[in-house]
């Protein structure tokens, strides 16, 4: 889940009586699963919430390039290098699709990018954790992309047309990501003792941060209720987290790896795994900017943006010269 802790704009779900005629017509459309398109009327709060959510999602893709990109130059084989590079490239593509979806809401990509760069907008907390050994690359694909897919598959049905279409395109590519991750970590888990140690180390460090990706419990949140009524959030955070744990535990067992939670066990009655909640104080620290990599990640994005300014300006200046010359020739 690349959009965490999105504060829904507005004051909570209105009853039908409280809605204006326009708001009622809007809600009816959503209830009937008719997509909202950029030119349709929409409540200001819906627009504002979507800009935050899609923006945070897009930023997460772009910042998410960094921890995995950290290993491109150290990939151990040519094939692994190509797969990883293609994967990180896909993330740039996903960011691009999502920024385009956000742009249909009236905010330009440069504007929203600057909000990331100066800290006004956030990205997923998971990318503030480091990738320290090669197995992290497998673990990120397996766990982080696995968690992201849980959230993204339902979002294909989200009410805003451009967002929904971006998610459909992204989901097509994401399953490749999770599979390559699992395949990479499987090689490690089945490899030499050192490789197995790397795999376990990666799981130890990334397990709880992956659970945090779903955000704090929100079953009683008014914000979530509004977002769910608008169908820009489909499931609660807890539902998705449980689903993720249930799916991941057997996958870890298959690899012979141990999930770092002594209290993890199957609950026959619930038909789900019981598990230890992540340390939410750590989560809030990371969100506030105190994760292990927050400063580095933002610095890297700022550097790329600042160093690239002359390139963007240069190519645009050339395009304008060419256009002017063309007009002059006509």
């Amino acid at each position: 889940m690349y959009a965490q802790m999105i504060k829904t704009a507005g004051t909570g779900v209105k009853s039908r009586e409280e809605m204006t005629e326009q708001e009622r017509a809007f809600q009816d459309k959503i209830d009937a699963d008719i997509k909202i398109e950029p030119k349709d009327w929409m409540p200001d709060d819906y627009r504002a919430t979507l800009i935050r959510q899609i923006g945070q999602h897009a930023h997460s893709e772009i910042v998410g390039q960094l921890p995995e990109g950290n290993w491109i130059t150290r990939a151990p084989t040519l094939e692994r290098k190509a797969i990883l590079l293609a994967k990180v490239q896909d993330e740039a593509g996903h960011g691009l699709y999502l920024y385009c979806a956000a742009e249909t809401l009236g905010v330009s990509r440069d504007e929203i990018t600057e909000m990331l760069l100066d800290g006004r907008m956030k990205y997923s907390s998971i990318f503030n954790y480091p990738t320290l050994n090669w197995a992290d690359i497998g673990a990120v694909g397996w766990l982080v992309d696995g968690a992201a897919i849980m959230n993204q598959v339902p979002l294909q049905r989200t009410s805003f047309g451009p967002y929904s279409r971006a998610m459909i395109r992204i989901c097509k590519e994401e399953s490749f990501h999770q599979r390559q991750g699992y395949d990479a970590i499987r090689k490690m888990a089945e490899g030499t003792p050192e490789q197995k140690k790397m795999a376990q180390d990666a799981l130890n460090r990334l397990w709880y941060p992956s659970l945090m990706m779903f955000g704090p419990s929100d079953k009683d949140s008014v914000h979530s209720a509004q977002s769910m009524a608008w169908k820009i959030k489909i499931n609660t955070n807890d539902e998705l987290r449980q689903k993720f744990v249930d799916q991941t535990v057997p996958q870890a067992e298959y690899l012979g790896l141990t999930i770092p939670d002594p209290d993890l066990k199957w609950n026959e009655e619930r038909g789900h795994y019981d598990f230890t909640d992540p340390d939410w104080s750590e989560f809030y620290d990371v969100v506030k900017g105190n994760g292990p990599c927050n400063v580095d990640r933002l610095a890297a994005r700022n550097k790329a943006w600042d160093d690239g300014a002359w390139v963007r300006d240069g190519l645009l200046a050339h395009a304008r010269k060419k256009a002017a010359a063309k007009v002059a020739a006509e």
Partner: peptide, 28 residues
């Protein structure tokens, strides 16, 4: 672009460009 569903005077000609809605921003 056409308006998907709504009709009439809500849409000024200047709004017929899909991608440039007046910037609406909520500052955190």
């Amino acid at each position: 672009a056409s308006s998907p569903s709504d009709k009439g005077p809500l849409y000024e000609p200047s709004e017929s460009k899909v991608y440039r809605h007046p910037t609406f921003f909520d500052i955190p």
